Simulated assay, not measured.
Amino acid sequence: MTNQEAKPIVEESLAKLKESVKREGTYNKEIADDKLTLKTLEKMKTDGEELPLDCPYESFDEWITQINKEIKSGENSLARIGKEKAEIVAFEYFVANAN
Rank of each mutant, 00 (worst) to 15 (best):
Leu14Met: 03
Asn68Arg: 15
Glu70Pro: 02
Cys55Thr: 06
Glu12Trp: 13
Lys35Leu: 09
Glu70Trp: 07
Asp33Lys: 13
Phe94Thr: 05
Lys69Leu: 06
Ala96His: 05
Asn28Val: 10
Thr26Glu: 14
Gly82Glu: 12
Glu50Leu: 07
Val89Lys: 14
Lys7His: 02
Phe60Cys: 09
Asn97Tyr: 08
Met1Leu: 11
Asp61Glu: 15
Ala32Arg: 09
Thr2Val: 03
Lys72Gln: 11
Asn76Tyr: 00
Phe91Gly: 04
Lys22Thr: 06
Glu30Arg: 15
Phe94Pro: 05
Glu11Ser: 15
Asp33His: 11
Glu62Cys: 05
Gln4Cys: 04
Glu75Gly: 07
Glu87Phe: 11
Asn76Asp: 08
Gln4Lys: 14
Leu78Pro: 08
Cys55Gln: 06
Glu12Val: 12
Ile31Gly: 03
Gly82Phe: 04
Met44Leu: 11
Ile31Met: 03
Ser77Lys: 13
Ser59Asp: 06
Cys55Pro: 08
Glu5Ile: 04
Asn3Pro: 13
Ser77Cys: 05
Ala32Trp: 01
Thr46His: 09
Glu24Cys: 03
Gly74Glu: 01
Glu87Arg: 15
Lys45Val: 00
Asn76Thr: 01
Thr26His: 12
Lys45Thr: 00
Ser20Lys: 02
Gly25Trp: 11
Leu53Gln: 14
Trp63Asn: 02
Lys22Gln: 12
Asp34Arg: 10
Lys85Gln: 09
Glu19His: 11
Trp63Tyr: 12
Glu75Gln: 14
Tyr27Trp: 15
Asp61Lys: 04
Ile88Lys: 12
Leu51Phe: 08
Pro52Leu: 05
Leu14Trp: 01
Asn68Met: 06
Glu49Tyr: 09
Glu19Val: 11
Leu78Met: 09
Asp34Asn: 15
Thr40Phe: 04
Pro52Asn: 09
Leu38Lys: 08
Val95Glu: 05
Glu50Gly: 03
Gly74Asp: 00
Thr37Val: 10
Glu84Ala: 12
Asn99His: 13
Trp63Arg: 09
Pro52Met: 07
Ser20Tyr: 00
Glu58Lys: 15
Gln66Pro: 06
Lys72Thr: 12
Lys7Ala: 04
Ser59His: 07
Asp54Phe: 10
Glu11Met: 15
Lys45Gly: 00
Phe91Cys: 06
Ala90Cys: 08
Gly48Phe: 02
Val21Trp: 04
Thr65Pro: 02
Val21Glu: 04
